[in-house]
């Protein structure tokens, strides 16, 4: 069946061939994405780096926390490929373990922000009227509330649930196998997502609302409405896919912001506990020692930049791929 995707509706110039193959927005996009070499490259780098980080404990022999105080900070060498930090810990191991945290925080928290922001903005923009007013004033309020205080309060009041989560995970076992043993601080990470998600969706919501308003009066939406489609269907099936471009671009900007925000939150005590680290905190520490121990800034910063560049290439590719009109030029 031909899916009633917004692109199909107004376009008289769709070839019958496409119609017969039942091309959906997503399949089309996937085809175009695969042809975009930069995007493929970006996607590959992201996947490879993520896999390396996730599999670090099994594929890399050095630990992120084993110290060698007498060694101290040494430049890259045969034994420590990226050098060591001031406590003599292997930097590569710290980057890989830090990458796990940063990628997880960056992706999950951005996703949270994305889902909330897009739905919220789309509903406000489409429904309009009083509901829009109220929803957008709530966004204004959320913007203005002091974030630092919000985070501290979150930690104070959710401390017990956090510890309950950790305790439950510690006890959790499948066939006598304690899958999450020693995973202290999972509760804190969940809270971290909540804290970041709570602020990052605001601008997303405003952007989506602006876009939705701009296409609300377009012919194909009117057409969908006249066909008697339900509001949720119109919003999520026909309007949201059409504003995905800015959404993707803004999401690719949210990810680095979130990763750096994490290092501020870890200052407030929210995030991973030392000696575990994240890319953000590694960069922060490295930036204070850049003249003496350049590798402590350059390599974590390099890993951070590589990830972001790749994510952005992928994001641009996705944006282009989802932009049906562009493909017709």
């Amino acid at each position: 069946m031909v899916s009633l995707s917004p692109q199909n509706l107004p376009s008289a110039d769709l070839t019958t061939d496409q119609l017969e193959r039942g091309t959906s927005l997503w399949r089309d996009a996937w085809h175009r994405l695969r042809r975009n070499r930069l995007a493929v490259f970006g996607g590959t780098v992201v996947i490879v780096f993520s896999l390396t980080c996730v599999l670090a404990p099994w594929i890399f022999h050095l630990s992120y926390q084993d110290q060698n105080l007498d060694l101290g900070a040494v430049a890259p060498n045969a034994q420590h490929w990226l050098g060591t930090d001031t406590l003599g810990r292997d930097l590569l191991a710290r980057i890989l373990y830090g990458g796990r945290i940063s990628l997880m925080v960056g992706l999950v928290a951005s996703l949270v922000a994305l889902v909330i922001g897009v739905s919220y903005g789309a509903i406000a923009g489409y429904v309009g009227g009083t509901l829009d007013s109220v929803m957008m004033r709530i966004v204004d309020i959320m913007y203005a509330l002091p974030f630092t205080i919000f985070v501290i309060l979150l930690m104070v009041f959710l401390k017990d649930p956090m510890q309950a989560v950790d305790a439950w995970l510690g006890r959790f076992s499948i066939f006598g196998f304690h899958a999450f043993e020693g995973m202290q601080g999972v509760g804190k990470i969940l809270l971290l997502f909540a804290a970041i998600g709570a602020v990052e969706w605001l601008t997303m919501a405003r952007i989506v609302r602006g876009q939705i308003l701009s296409i609300k009066k377009m012919e194909y939406i009117e057409a969908a409405r006249s066909m008697g489609l339900g509001t949720p269907r119109i919003i999520f099936r026909h309007m949201v896919p059409n504003v995905l471009g800015p959404v993707i671009v803004y999401t690719s900007l949210t990810i680095p912001a979130v990763m750096l925000l994490e290092s501020f939150l870890s200052f407030l005590g929210l995030g991973v506990d030392a000696p575990m680290s994240s890319l953000g905190t590694l960069i922060k520490d490295g930036s204070e020692k850049m003249e003496e121990f350049w590798w402590l800034l350059v390599f974590p910063g390099g890993a951070f930049s590589l990830t972001l560049f790749s994510l952005n290439f992928l994001g641009d590719g996705l944006r282009d791929a989802l932009d049906v009109r562009a493909s017709k030029d």
Partner: peptide, 15 residues
Amino acid sequence: NSSETHRAIAEVVQA
């Protein structure tokens, strides 16, 4: 309290 020095000392003592 959050500070690089206190953290480094704590990490070393922990180890």
